[in-house]
Each structure stands twice: as structure tokens, then as C-alpha cells.
């Protein structure tokens, strides 16, 4: 459990998957700007009453993008071993499926 302790090993362990360019603070800042912009957009969309139920797909897509940005860049899933992505996405997808099944069972979509 100790690779990080040795700097040489640390590099080896961290670099097990292919590194397509380590993200730089610049990247992190750009992601933050994107997150801010999307949140602002969400709030603006919220006040467009004429969109009515149309805001549902818009907001779902916008928040999915935010979710993906944080997971891929800040949580490094884009640069890390795909096993980590698998573990996280498995829980996420199952949670979504169970939630949707529950909503269907409570006559949510009818």
C-alpha cells in the first residue's frame, strides 16, 4: 500500500494508466470558469418561465455536464485507472436505475 512513499514508485503507481498530459492549474481554473458559467446559465434558465417544462431537459443536461467536469478533471478520473471510474460509475448507474424504478413504481411517469 505504499508506493507513494518512494518517489520513484510513486511515479510508477500514479502513472500506471496513460497520462495524456497532466492537468495544470490553468486547466483547473478553466474548469472552474465553466462550472461557474453553467451554474449562472442554470439560474437564468430557471427564471425563463416561458420554457415551462422545457427547463427539465435543459437543466438535467447542464447539471450532468457539471457533474462530469468535476468527476473527470477535479477527481482525475480522466487521467486515472479505469477501474476507479468503473467503481464509481457502477454505484452511480445503479443508484440512477433504482431511483428511476422507484419513481416508476410510485406512478411518477404516468
Amino acid at each position: 500500500m505504499t508506493q507513494q512513499a518512494h518517489s520513484a514508485d510513486a511515479h510508477h503507481a500514479e502513472a500506471a494508466p496513460v497520462h495524456t498530459g497532466h492537468p495544470t492549474p490553468g486547466t483547473y481554473f478553466k474548469v472552474a470558469m465553466a462550472l461557474t458559467a453553467i451554474t449562472a446559465l442554470e439560474v437564468v434558465v430557471y427564471f425563463f418561465e416561458w420554457l415551462s417544462y422545457g427547463i427539465i431537459p435543459i437543466l438535467v443536461i447542464l447539471s450532468l455536464v457539471k457533474f462530469a467536469l468535476v468527476a473527470m478533471f477535479y477527481m482525475h478520473l480522466r487521467y486515472d485507472h479505469k477501474l476507479f471510474s468503473t467503481m464509481f460509475v457502477a454505484g452511480l448507474v445503479l443508484a440512477l436505475l433504482v431511483a428511476f424504478a422507484l419513481l416508476a413504481l410510485f406512478k411518477w411517469f404516468i
Binding site: M87, F88, V89, G91, L92, L94, A95, L96, V98, A99
Partner: peptide, 10 residues
Amino acid sequence: LGSDCMFFGS
């Protein structure tokens, strides 16, 4: 974290 997804999902 995968497990916690189920927690918040519920």
C-alpha cells in the same frame, strides 16, 4: 464513493 452514490440515490 460508489457506495455513497447509493446512499444519496436513496
